[in-house]
């Protein structure tokens, strides 16, 4: 297993990875800013969401624009059992993941017969339908949302901590687990099959791949991971409502995290989450008071990155190397 996890990397790359992990662990100790704690936690949560979407959109090539549905369901699966039965999130989070995988299985069977834009539009419509249902149903508390704060409960049992750094460290470990699972799966038959389906469905069928079945499996795994992200977000905020979790905007953000970092790559979503969240939070904090100027700047920066690095930020080192090589060969020719 260690070979699968680390076998692809040189000693230098592993050392860089170790240093980055150490920095990520030390960072919360270097600041007392709640803004920074919040930013770090959001980066971790959005990394998980991006990795979840990436299974379906990046590896399998089925671009879903409705993953906010699973994000919202993940939140409801911890919020409602807590509200009605006082259930611990340690049970509710895995339940939410299973629930979302089942939902993905049920809707995936018909929806995944659609291809390309039709699939993207259909998933978007489904997410909107689900949002309206959640807004209008009584047992979900409708538009009021779910308040999860409970006074005097065991903080470990109910994941309700006063110190945001505890959330960060816990979520960081969960993110590393999701990353490790993705990395291991990327070397297994399942992910090779997903990449084959992304490449060409006819070619996939010609090597014995049951395309529909593997698409549904990818959708289930993707939904489960995104549900995990939704549960963690709800648990951190201790409040959520459909308007903040199940909108098209959220679906697009999930897509953007993976696309900006490097679609179909293991580490891309983490890089995407770091950049997107930093851009989003810093522009909001510094320019938020100027009537949407923060969103304009944020949008422009996103456009610039996507335009010049269509393969995602992970391709930046290769692009720089390519540029340097070209420059060196030009200079050599001139001499």
């Amino acid at each position: 297993m260690l070979k699968t996890l680390f076998g692809d990397y040189s000693k230098k790359q592993l050392a860089i990875g170790a240093v980055l992990i150490v920095i990520a662990l030390i960072l919360p100790q270097l600041t007392k800013s709640l803004f920074m704690y919040n930013l770090l936690i959001l980066i971790v949560i959005w990394s998980i969401l991006g990795m979840g979407w990436n299974v379906m959109g990046g590896f399998c090539g089925q671009v879903s624009n409705g993953h906010s549905m699973f994000y919202g369901f993940g939140a409801y699966c911890v919020g409602l059992p807590l509200q009605y039965f006082g259930l611990s999130p340690w049970i509710a989070i895995p339940f939410g993941m299973c629930f979302c995988a089942c939902v993905a299985w049920v809707i995936g069977k018909p929806v995944l017969r659609l291809k390309g834009h039709a699939f993207a539009i259909c998933t978007m419509a489904l997410a909107e339908c689900m949002r309206y249902i959640c807004v209008n149903m009584e047992f979900t508390n409708g538009a009021k949302g779910v308040n999860m704060f409970k006074k005097g409960v065991n903080p470990i049992l109910f994941l309700q901590f006063k110190d945001p750094r505890v959330y960060y460290y816990l979520y960081f470990v969960i993110m590393l687990i999701v990353l490790a699972v993705t990395k291991i799966l990327s070397k297994k038959r399942f992910f090779y099959y997903l990449r084959t389906i992304k490449g060409n469905e006819d070619a996939a069928a010609s090597v014995g791949i049951d395309v529909s079945r593997y698409k549904v499996r990818a959708y289930m795994l993707s939904a489960a991971i995104v549900s995990l992200g939704g549960s963690l977000y709800a648990q951190y905020m201790l409040y959520f409502d459909p308007a903040s979790m199940m909108t098209l905007n959220v679906s697009m953000m999930i897509v953007l995290v993976a696309v900006m970092g490097g679609i179909g790559t293991v580490f891309g979503p983490i890089l995407g989450a770091i950049v997107i969240e930093c851009l989003s939070e810093f522009t909001r904090a510094s320019l938020g008071q100027y009537g949407g100027l923060d969103m304009v700047l944020y949008g422009c920066l996103v456009i610039i990155i996507v335009l010049f690095l269509p393969g995602g930020l992970l391709t930046l080192p290769a692009k720089i190397r390519e540029y340097m090589d070209r420059k060196a060969s030009k200079e050599g020719a001139a001499k």
Partner: peptide, 19 residues
């Protein structure tokens, strides 16, 4: 030819061998 362009030659053949 329906080659899987984003995969290496080895990976293209591997998906067949994994059957």
């Amino acid at each position: 030819p329906q080659s899987l362009n984003e995969m290496t030659v080895t990976e293209n053949v591997l998906v067949g061998a994994l059957m």
